[in-house]
Amino acid sequence: MNWGVSELTVTFGDTVALDRVSLNAPSGRVTGVVGGDGAGKTTLLRCLAGVVKPAAGEVRSPPRERMGYLSAKSGTYPDLSVEENLSFSAQAYGMPTAEARVRTEELLQRTGLAYARARLAGQLSGGMRQKLGVVRAMLHRPELLVLDEPTTGIDPVSRADLWWLIARAAAEGAAVVLTTAYLDEAERASWLLALDDGQTLAQGTPEDIASSVKGTIHRADQRPTADVATRSWRRAATWRIWTPPATEAMTMPAPDPAQWELVRPDLTDAVTVAALAREAAGHGGRRPA
């Protein structure tokens, strides 16, 4: 099945949270939604889950029995144990007891939650609680698995476990839609939608998006001069400077090869550049960090 949204518009009062956004989420694929805080990622997922009513556009999602949803707030009961949380969910979705037990056991073992099965969810570390949330959402083998920031604030080891779970759900045939604020891990998704201020910034495979950058990107070891400040951003200990194609030949001083090194844009660069370009065109008011 091909779940997703078409021309989706969501408003909260006067605020347009999503503006004609379209996204396909076919079975077996991990589809990522990236964007800064307030870009509309959560709203898009809540529409898919059916907890937000769109103002316009179409939402294609399966009936509730065949959908799994992890909200950004985790959605597990802090005062129930790991096992109790899972058995509540299994019962709610009408899973046969024996099947639920086998699947619970397997997922708990694989994610390292097995030894904490009797612990209250409220006493789990952030990473373990997130894993529990994802296990809970995919336990009943949903056709559409919607995960809101499953990896936010999680250490790399737990994140690897989470990605294993996510890949597993997709391998089982689920259409997975997830949001993440981390562009480096977004590359693990097969398809990406980048949102900015409720609008589509870019869409495609991570490679497509990375190679779609117009203009050039240089790396500098020192803070660039003020004339390019609006086109530069910091990455780790270095700076990146974007040179739009139109100005490349004309107004730009020739890059000083001693200071600037031409780089091949990656996904992070591409999304940042897309946001900068949108800002330069007069949309959006916010500079990416």
């Binding site: 009062g13 949270a17 805080d37 509309g40 809540r46 907890v51 937000v52 009513k53 909200s71 950004a72």
Partner: peptide, 20 residues
Amino acid sequence: APGGGRGRGAGERSAGDAAR
């Protein structure tokens, strides 16, 4: 119900986020 009630909590959170 979808988008129902006072939409407090997550609903207004996303609205607030979008407005920021």
